[in-house]
Amino acid sequence: MEYNPLFDGTYHLRPWVDSLPLEYKYSLGVAGKTFSEGLRRGKILASKCSRCNESRIPPSIYCVGCFGYSDGYVQVSETGTLYSFASRGDLVVAAVEFKGVKGLLFHRLVVSDRNKLEIGAPVRPVFVQEAIRKGDITDIDHFELAV
């Protein structure tokens, strides 16, 4: 290998600073809107495909397995299990699994004693008060251990 001797990677940059003010207004989509309405009612909804006999979150109008239309929504169980977790400072984040449902839900986890956390532990969502729900993922305030 030969290198350009000018290329020592140590010289100083001459910077130019710029910023681009961009803002987006997204559509939640057909399945996303249903999921959002479910959150407002304190429910986590999965889509189901009766051909594949599968439910999945996040819900989708199509089945990833057979690529046909999904045929409805089902509520996931009230308690899930901890698939994995990670932490930084006071914050714990988790991926939660629900029985019989493909897909995990990512969210915050609040626990009194982090050392007790174990993969496979039962966890449940804690919703904010109904009056202040907006149909956002943050309508779930956090997950907690269901023991």
Binding site: Y26, A86, I137, T138
Partner: peptide, 23 residues
Amino acid sequence: FDQFLERPLGVTLLWIFSLEMRR
């Protein structure tokens, strides 16, 4: 990240790699 499901939670790549590493 997903605009609706993930960004409002402030998710970063490092978090999800940590979840994967722990799993």
